[in-house]
Each structure stands twice: as structure tokens, then as C-alpha cells.
């Protein structure tokens, strides 16, 4: 059913499909022409050994795949920390305590108004020696601190999206403020929070490329290394961009699956 409808859709829009493919064909041709003018030497066949290594029938991850694992590892730690940290900050912002609100607001404004690269340098060069963090954790903490500020805003808008009546009703039957938050408000704000949070996670994976600047060997840095070794600039960058695209696409498919599940769960 799906393929046949796709077929009819394609047939109905033959002209558009042809022009669309023509544009990208022309773009690709133009690029190839420009590279040819500079006598760029394409060596796609040499790329594979940097993706995986075969040795005695065994397969090992090459530099690019190892870089991908580092990227995913850093992102995973940063995601967990920023989800928890963002929640704490959101709670502080919603709190009745003046100091809690002030600290949360300052944190959000400061982090949102300086570039992530400068934040990385601040943490790596200034805070890391103070707390004895190594490179890897300086990278993780930068990403976590940066995204936590955005996560906090997501939690806040999710909580605010729950109708006031719900809170008031919960209060009137005698629940304490924390109980109202955890039994009434938060469960209902989940459908608002989840889509934005999964989006944030995808952004975090993309932003993690920045840690290559402090010599963490993530996907981007491994790519730079391979280029320095082989001069296959375009092959390697296209491969790296392709890997990022695959990862973000898989994550966004996962995100839409989660979103649909929660929607179905709440529709029951």
C-alpha cells in the first residue's frame, strides 16, 4: 500500500521529481567540475581502511568508527547529566525560594549567552585544573552544562503547559507541594517535555563535535587526523558528515517512535 501510493505520488509529480533531481545533479556536477579544475584526486577506495580494519578474518573498528564510539560515549554521559541537571535547575526556577530562583536564572542566562566554544575553554582551562577533571570529563561537563540550561527551559515550559486547574485541584485535596509536582504536574507535562528533550539530545550529539578542539579523539578529530595523514579531504569529511547524518537520523526516528508511544499511552 505504501509503495503503491509512493509510486502514484511520484508519477503525478514526474516534472517536479525530474527538476529536483536535476538541480542536485547539476550541483554535484558543478562541484566535481570545480574539484577537477584544481585536479583533486578522488580516492574513495582508500577510505574503507579508516572505517574498519580486517585482520585474519577478524574485523576491528578503524579510526573513524572508534571516533564515533567516543562521540557516542561523551554524548551519552552528557545527556544523562544534562537531563538531571536541567531538571534540578527547572525545579529551582519554579521554587518559592528567592536564592534558588536567582541562582537558576543566573545560570541559564550566563550559559545561554556565551558561545559553547568559549564555555569549553573556560571549563577546560579554568575549572578543570581546579576540580582535577581530565580532558574527557571536561568535554562531558561542557556539553552537560551547556545543554542543561536549555533542558531547564524545556522542563519549565512543559510544566507551565499543564493547566492551572490541575495543580489547584491537587492542592485542594490536600497534597503537599512536592506531591503536587511529582504525582500531578510532572506526569502530565511529559508529553510536552519528551519531543523537545529528544530534539535536545540530537543537538547535543551534533554539538559534541566541539570537544575535538581540546584534543578529545571523537569522530571529528579522528576525521581531521585521517585527513592530515592521507590528504583525502573531501572523502573523509563527506564520510564524517554522513556518519553524523546517520546517527542523527536514527535518533530522530527513535524520537518519533517514543513520541508516538507516549501519545498513544496518554490517549488511553
Amino acid at each position: 500500500m505504501a509503495t503503491s501510493s509512493l509510486q502514484t505520488a511520484l508519477l503525478r509529480n514526474v516534472k517536479d521529481v525530474v527538476i529536483f533531481l536535476g538541480i542536485f545533479g547539476l550541483l554535484a556536477l558543478g562541484m566535481l567540475w570545480v574539484l577537477d579544475q584544481q585536479s583533486y584526486d578522488w580516492q574513495w577506495f582508500r577510505l574503507w581502511r579508516y572505517v574498519y580494519i580486517e585482520h585474519d578474518g577478524q574485523y576491528y573498528a578503524g579510526p573513524l568508527l572508534r571516533g564515533l564510539f567516543t562521540t557516542l560515549e561523551i554524548s551519552a554521559y552528557a545527556i544523562v547529566i544534562s537531563a538531571i541537571g536541567g531538571f534540578v535547575i527547572a525545579m529551582m526556577r519554579a521554587s518559592k525560594l528567592i536564592t534558588a530562583r536567582a541562582i537558576a536564572k543566573t545560570y541559564i542566562e550566563v550559559v545561554r549567552n556565551i558561545p559553547i566554544l568559549v564555555l569549553l575553554f573556560l571549563i577546560y582551562f579554568v575549572l578543570a585544573p581546579v576540580f582535577g577533571l581530565n580532558r574527557f570529563w571536561a568535554g562531558v561537563m561542557t556539553l552537560a552544562i551547556y545543554e542543561a540550561a536549555f533542558a531547564a527551559e524545556i522542563y519549565r515550559s512543559g510544566i507551565e503547559a499543564v493547566p492551572r486547574g490541575q495543580k489547584e485541584a491537587a492542592k485542594s485535596i490536600g497534597l503537599r507541594p512536592l506531591q503536587v509536582m511529582f504525582y500531578v504536574t510532572l506526569p502530565q507535562s511529559l508529553p510536552f517535555i519528551l519531543p523537545a528533550m529528544t530534539n535536545l539530545m540530537i543537538n547535543l550529539v551534533k554539538h559534541s563535535a566541539i570537544v575535538s578542539v581540546i584534543a578529545i579523539f571523537d569522530l571529528t578529530n579522528e576525521g581531521r587526523n585521517v585527513i592530515a595523514e592521507t590528504f583525502m579531504v573531501f572523502e573523509v569529511w563527506f564520510a564524517v558528515a554522513g556518519i553524523y547524518l546517520v546517527v542523527t537520523t536514527i535518533l530522530s526516528i527513535l524520537a518519533s517512535v517514543i513520541e508516538n508511544r507516549t501519545k498513544r499511552f496518554y490517549a488511553r
Binding site: K206, S208, A209, I210, G223, F234, A241, Y244, T248, T249
Partner: peptide, 14 residues
């Protein structure tokens, strides 16, 4: 869908 840094590396060189 690609990191800003990677975009910059590709296009700056190109």
C-alpha cells in the same frame, strides 16, 4: 543535521 564544526570544515575548504 550535521555539526556546525563539520559543516565549517567541509565548506571552508571547498
Amino acid at each position: 543535521n550535521i555539526p556546525p564544526l563539520v559543516f565549517l570544515f567541509i565548506f571552508y575548504f571547498f
